[in-house]
Amino acid sequence: MSEIAQTSEAEIPRPADDRLRRALFRFRQSKLSMLGAAVVAIVLFFTAFGTVLAPYPEHIAGAVDTANRFQPPSLTHPFGTNELGQDVLSLVMAGATVSVLAGFGVVLIGTLIGTLVGAVAGFVGGWTDEGLMRLTDLTLTIPSLILAMAIAAALGPGFTNMVIAISLSWWPGYARLVRGEVLAAREEVYVTAARAIGANPSRILFRHILPNVVSPIIVKMSLDMGFAILTVAGLGFIGIGVRPPTPEWGTLLSLSRSYMPDYWWTAMAPGMAMFFAVFGFNLLGDGLRDILDPKARR
């Protein structure tokens, strides 16, 4: 018997990182995914170092140079200067930090709240499920931008308040996603096996169920990043986000709209930055979905 067992057991010498390698391969096959990853890498680079690398750091802090206001794009000012004579490129580079970090914060907090609510609802079931999901539905009926405006208005403007405000309208999507996934994972045989072993509910939830629903959450996070950045910019645009002089893409766009047709470059640069960031995160999200969650493919 042992000889037979030996031969059959030697048949698959697969390396441990097989799945990861295959996923990476599939990701590289898709040009759009790679483009998305590259754009996101650039955006993240400016998020981290934009403030340091900006050619006119004093303009980020709020210094003005009225002698040079509304300079068209040139070699000294690649994206021109705004109504205060500040270098638009420097402002946009620094704005990446605020916009992307805020977007990231929104998605992260939204995911945390949503995952908690969805996991508890799906795992406990019964009236808890009913109550939590009706609360979720209720939050979904309120237009997110209006709710965020109301919260931001109540808490006062500022970076943290803006992130909290948007997050509070952001989590229901995650709650629904996670609840569905938990409901499915709860019926897996390995969960029954864990219950037969005598594992307690928290162990079953955190060791057996949640690790197996991570992929769709990550995919949704990366797809949501773009929209979160847009929402942050939207709040900035209507004036309840980050206050100037702190540069933020939405705020920059909002300030430049009164000088629009003549001094187009003041709006062009933050707008394009937003466009590229959202575009990059969406492409990356699509690519991640294709490799992590092939079932959900279009």
């Binding site: 045989v189 390995y190 029954t192 096996a193 864990a194 037969a196 005598g198 060791r207 690790p211 197996n212």
Partner: peptide
């Protein structure tokens, strides 16, 4: 819980009864 240590089960489908993340 103590009794669960003394009664154990092997399931039919070995592909479904092991947690893929462990």
């Amino acid at each position: 819980r103590r009794l669960r240590a003394r009664v154990q089960i092997v399931f039919q489908d070995p592909y479904a009864s092991l947690n893929p993340r462990m």
